[in-house]
């Protein structure tokens, strides 16, 4: 595998600076921080490794197929482990919806789905019409309210379409947490900065799938590059299937799509 390495004289910081200042035209190479280890893992997203990462010419899509989600909570566990997410805060979680014949919707999400769903709900007295699981994560809005309201530019939308948090500049005002219609954000209790799901940006840039996608046993979570016409997400988005987004009326234009989401899903 070809890794693009900076010249040995250049340390990473100055290299990155050079890239950013435009000496290396508009592209962002990546230098692997943990030896070649992560590169020994076969690439999962084709077209990332071994070539220039043109940050302005990328498009990724995330699709959650709720008809395939079985509520095992693998994604939640993987997510917590990948980031050491502090207890009580969630980058991703899985909700359980139960719909009664009266049209009443019962939703619960004990411990964010981390322990899975071992038992059915016992507190529902009426006859159940339908039940399903809904995984939630950052919607990567194209018009992200969190980016709009961040007073210091610590939350931003990168040219490749990811809403990221600059933990070195975040002042911890929590305005973005208020602004997110999906409640995907939280304030890290120790670092005191805002955090949220990044679709595992650090994995994607190494050609790997997001941790939650990678561990999903049923393929309910799908991720891929829209530049790759063979990818599953490309085929789904190109196809006739009905895809919806959450809280469309918020005008946030999420790039997270749901397949098979019922109207009760908020």
């Amino acid at each position: 595998m070809k890794i693009i390495n900076p010249s040995p004289k250049m340390n990473r910081r100055s290299f990155v600076k050079k890239v950013l200042n435009g000496t290396i035209a508009g592209s962002l190479y990546l230098v692997w921080p943990m030896g070649s280890e992560s590169l020994e893992i076969p690439e999962q997203i084709p077209g990332i490794r071994g070539r220039e990462y043109d940050i302005h010419n990328q498009e990724f899509a995330f699709i959650v197929d709720i008809t395939r989600c079985i509520g095992c909570g693998s994604c939640c566990v993987a997510d917590k482990r990948e980031y050491n997410v502090p207890d009580g805060n969630f980058r991703t979680w899985v909700e359980r919806y139960v719909k009664g014949f009266s049209d009443e919707v019962y939703v619960d999400c004990p411990n964010g789905g981390l322990d899975g769903y071992q038992h059915p709900r016992k507190d529902i007295t009426e006859k159940v019409r339908d039940t399903f699981f809904v995984p939630k994560l950052c919607n990567m809005c194209r018009e992200a309210p969190c980016v709009q309201v961040c007073p210091v530019g610590a939350t931003f939308k990168s040219p490749d379409g990811f809403v990221l948090v600059d933990e070195k500049r975040c002042v911890g005002c929590a305005y973005c947490i208020q602004a997110c219609p999906y409640s995907a954000r939280f304030l890290h209790p120790v670092k005191k900065v805002a955090q949220k799901c990044t679709w595992c940006y650090h994995r994607i840039r190494k050609g790997l799938l997001p941790a939650c996608v990678q561990v999903c046993p049923t393929g309910a979570r799908k991720f891929g590059s829209m530049k790759d016409e063979t990818s599953e997400v490309y085929k789904i988005l190109k196809g006739p299937g009905v895809l919806t987004v959450l809280k469309k009326e918020m005008g946030t234009f999420p790039s997270l799509y749901y397949e098979g989401a019922r109207r009760e899903v908020i």
Partner: peptide, 22 residues
């Protein structure tokens, strides 16, 4: 560089070490 934010933050986000392999 790209907008009203620190472009280095993108690099830092990309350089976070992975914890899950495959």
């Amino acid at each position: 560089v790209y907008g009203p934010y620190r472009a280095d933050a993108i690099v830092e986000a990309a350089l976070v070490p992975i914890r899950h392999g495959t």
